[in-house]
């Protein structure tokens, strides 16, 4: 499988990365190089093989359903580029 320029622009949109025409052109070639490289996986016979979901066979740990953390609003917004009264500020979302 290979990607064309329109697909690269669509994927960039999905990934929320602005790309210039020139970058999209360059990425098309690079992505096709990588996709060509991974293409060899299709020759592996995987009949009856389960996909790996966990490298170590273990049951997911569960903790007691109790509040163990919190009241850290100041810490949470401490690194925000723009915040006010412990809210994150973003450009207007709703018209």
């Amino acid at each position: 499988m290979s990607v064309d320029l329109a697909t690269v622009k669509r994927v960039a949109r999905l990934a929320r990365i602005a790309v210039s025409e020139e970058e999209a052109q360059r990425m098309t070639g690079e992505l096709n190089g990588i996709l060509g490289f991974v293409e060899q996986l299709s020759e592996v016979d995987v009949t009856g093989v389960e996909p790996m979901t966990s490298v170590t066979p273990m049951a997911m740990k569960k903790r007691v359903d109790a509040v163990t953390d919190g009241n850290k609003a100041d810490d949470i917004v401490a690194n925000a580029p723009n915040s006010e009264r412990n809210f994150f500020l973003v450009p207007k979302v709703v018209e």
Binding site: V38, L41, S42, V44, V46, V49, P51, M52, T53
Partner: peptide, 11 residues
């Protein structure tokens, strides 16, 4: 892609 890769990973 992804599912095939995870099966190969099992192998």
């Amino acid at each position: 892609y992804y599912l095939q890769a995870q099966k190969v990973r099992t192998l």
